Simulated scan of single mutants.
Amino acid sequence: MTLLFGFKEKDRHYRERKGVYGVIVNKEKKVLTVKHSGLYFLPGGGVEGGETNEQCLQREMLEEIGCEVISRTYIGHAKRYFYSRKGEPLLSDGYFYKTWISERVQEPLEDDHEICWLNVEEAKQLLFHDHHFWAVKHVLN
């Protein structure tokens, strides 16, 4: 079952973007997020070419936080209708995994991304996508 977030306007075409995201929680129950252009997201991103979800998650973790995925557990699938900052109607098609990572093995490749650890209330307020917070709640419950 796929959960839906946001509101789909009738007769509006939404460009769909499939992404894979990791929910990483430390011993203090803080969630690892990535801040980009002033917005907070779970680490992860768009599937490229013929990548599997697992390959995408591994690549995105290396690019954004410089760590390898040690193991993962599938959480679920959720979508969110929203508008980009440029006003484009988008549908974020997210696949979420509880993720365990290695120590840093390289410097992150995306130097415009800032790694931030947030407590649950901060994550609720700051995560840009509702379905990202849904995944966080699922892991913490």
Rank of each mutant, 00 (worst) to 15 (best):
F133H: 04
P43L: 00
K86A: 14
R59P: 05
R85W: 13
R15V: 10
A123H: 05
E103Y: 04
V31N: 01
E88F: 04
G49C: 09
K98E: 15
G76T: 07
V105I: 14
S71K: 15
K79W: 10
W117F: 13
T2R: 14
Y40D: 07
K18Q: 13
E16N: 00
K29V: 08
R12Y: 11
I115C: 00
G49H: 14
H138K: 14
N119W: 13
G94A: 15
E68I: 00
R59T: 08
R72T: 04
V47D: 05
G44L: 07
R17W: 04
K137M: 13
L118G: 01
S92K: 14
S92R: 11
V20E: 02
G94Q: 15
W100Y: 14
F82P: 00
K35I: 04
G38P: 09
K86P: 02
A123M: 10
Y40E: 04
D112Y: 15
E28L: 15
G66A: 09
G6D: 06
Q55Y: 01
L126N: 10
D130N: 10
E110Y: 13
E16T: 12
H131I: 04
G22D: 06
Y81L: 08
G50K: 12
G66L: 05
K10S: 13
S84P: 09
K18D: 03
H13W: 05
N26S: 08
K79Q: 13
G94D: 12
E54T: 10
Y74T: 02
G76K: 01
Q106Y: 06
G66I: 08
V136Y: 02
E60A: 06
F133A: 02
T52E: 04
I24D: 06
L91P: 02
L4E: 15
K98I: 04
N26L: 07
S37I: 14
P43V: 03
H132L: 09
Q55D: 12
L127N: 09
E107S: 09
K18A: 11
F133G: 05
L62N: 06
W134D: 02
Y83L: 15
L140Y: 05
Q106C: 12
I75K: 01
F96G: 08
H36A: 14
K8W: 03
F96K: 13
E103P: 00
T2K: 12
F5Y: 10
V23Q: 04
F5D: 06
I24G: 01
E114T: 14
L39M: 11
Y81T: 12
T52G: 01
Y95S: 10
E54M: 11
V20Q: 02
C116D: 07
D112E: 14
V34K: 00
G45P: 04
